[in-house]
């Protein structure tokens, strides 16, 4: 049972990194997705470029750049900060694209009805358009989050002591026992976390869709 307990010690950081970077990404993706749809051409091109770069850069490279590339004496990111920022910005790229797709499915008539009623643009966006868009892409967002949960293990490479990091450390120190056991436990924990999310998102999806489509 010792390897399981060791891996479990990594669980909080796995959750912090995945949930934290998801929140960072979900917030940063709002202005980015608006930028992808703006009629101001230079702004749209810049946002497009940023999104494509964030989606194109390998996570591990981006984490190394943030952790070890910024090394001025007065400013340096901790491992956790680098992980949150790195995975957060990459998530922003993916989520911006998902939001954009969702916004595109909201019929023009919804904007027009809001305008005709004299509802201001920000309120129309946040209370009428965005909720419908999010409902439509909520399964895609859940799928992305499950991927992010698993990808949070990449943070082990910049010394964030999450589950895979703990498994690795234990395996290295206990070669004689069974090197693979901690990894098996880590794998089972990832599955135990993602299956309920997938199930919840499916049932949520059915309910939400009923009220939109």
């Amino acid at each position: 049972m010792e390897p399981l307990l060791v891996v479990l010690q990594g669980l909080p950081l796995t959750l912090i990194v995945s949930i934290g970077s998801f929140i960072v990404g979900a917030i940063l993706a709002v202005p980015l997705s608006l930028g992808l749809r703006t009629s101001i051409l230079p702004l749209r091109l810049i946002c497009r470029l940023v999104v494509d770069l964030l989606r194109g850069v390998p996570m591990i490279v981006w984490l190394f750049v943030l952790k070890f590339g910024i090394s001025s004496p007065e400013f340096r990111l901790t491992s956790l900060e680098a992980a949150l920022l790195g995975l957060g910005t990459i998530s922003a790229g993916y989520l911006a694209e998902i939001y954009r797709a969702g916004l595109q499915t909201v019929p023009r008539g919804q904007y027009e009805a809001s305008q005709a009623l004299g509802i201001s643009r920000p309120i129309a966006f946040f209370r009428i358009i965005a909720p419908q868009a999010v409902r439509i892409v909520s399964p895609t967002i859940a799928t992305y989050f499950i991927g992010l949960l698993k990808n949070s293990s990449i943070a082990s490479t910049i010394i964030v002591a999450e589950m895979v990091f703990q498994a690795q450390a234990y395996a290295r120190q206990n070669l004689s026992i069974s090197g693979v056991l901690p990894y098996v436990f880590a794998g089972l924990l990832y599955i135990a976390l993602s299956v309920p999310i997938a199930m919840a998102s499916r049932s949520l999806d059915e309910r939400l869709r009923k009220s939109v489509i």
Binding site: E112, A113, A116
Partner: peptide
Amino acid sequence: LLSLRRTCGMVFQSFNLFPH
């Protein structure tokens, strides 16, 4: 613009109620 729109109500062919 907002005050002008407040003076007019509009009804569309496709209803455009807020589905959520």
